[in-house]
């Protein structure tokens, strides 16, 4: 019987890390601009193919750029003279490019990735088994505890909760947190019994062993290759343009 398996996304994770490292390493404005340009072109292509992601992507980029504005105001602007300093402008530009590049690349490469995909990808890249099991268990518990938290919130709100009175809000939030912790510990006790009852030892292998590298789908290799190519092209083009 064939089952639909979600593709292993480890190569995309590598691609994201590649962009992060390259962007953090590159200091020349030209290199960063070229990389960002390539990322923008890719995003336009991707969004034309899957337009339903565009709202989320644009909104995320806007939020990130609010922080970029903060950087311009604190790094580039000299408040005493109310003018922009040249060195400040250079640094702020570099940071703006870098932040936008990494955020955009992450959004593009990681679309549609679930928490479990992340666990499998990390495990495929050599995440220690114990950490992988902890990650997998945590993902499940977030779902379970999240349901409990919603019930706690409803119960607390049902008791004539008035958000305008600040001290009361703080008390209520503290109650939420305390209940969350209590429920978490009670669940932990029962989960420990469940582990023991099923005969699972301390670090049960909760994730299937990762697919061997040679069985990874071609399309994933293309993503990585494309990203690497874009990075190398940008660096090379920047060098050439600088020399000319």
């Amino acid at each position: 019987m064939s089952h639909h398996h979600r593709p292993d996304r480890r190569l995309r994770l590598v691609a994201v890390l590649l962009v992060s490292v390259a962007a953090s390493f590159a200091s020349s404005t030209l290199t960063l601009s070229l990389m960002l340009a390539l990322a923008l072109i890719s995003s336009v292509i991707l969004l034309s193919v899957r337009p339903n992601n565009s709202f989320r992507l644009i909104r995320r980029m806007l939020v990130v750029n609010m922080f970029v504005v903060l950087i311009w105001l604190t790094v580039a602007l000299d408040w005493r003279s109310m003018t922009f300093t040249p060195s400040g402008i250079t640094l702020a530009t570099q940071l703006s490019l870098r932040i936008n590049l990494i955020t955009l690349a992450s959004l593009l490469l990681l679309t549609g990735m679930t928490a479990l995909d992340l666990a499998r990808a990390a495990s495929g890249l050599g995440l220690p088994r114990a950490l992988g099991s902890l990650l997998t268990m945590s993902i499940r518990q977030i779902a379970l505890l999240g349901e409990t938290q919603q019930k706690i919130q409803l119960a607390i709100r049902a008791r004539a909760y008035r958000p305008r009175i600040h001290w009361h809000t703080i008390r209520v939030s503290a109650q939420q947190v305390a209940w969350l912790i209590i429920h978490a510990l009670l669940r932990a006790q029962r989960t420990e019994l469940g582990l023991k009852a099923r005969g699972l030892d301390t670090f049960p292998v909760l994730l299937r062993p990762a697919q061997p590298w040679r069985l990874l789908p071609r399309s994933e290799w293309y993503f990585l290759a494309g990203t690497a190519l874009a990075v190398i092209t940008a660096i090379a083009a920047a060098e050439i343009l600088k020399r000319s």
Binding site: L116, A119, T136, M137, I139, R140, L144, R187, R190, T191, L193, G194, L195, A197, R198, L200, P204, L206, L207
Partner: peptide
């Protein structure tokens, strides 16, 4: 167990 969530540990 009475509560299956106590012993369901795998992702799928």
């Amino acid at each position: 167990f009475q509560d299956p969530d106590d012993q369901l540990l795998g992702p799928t």
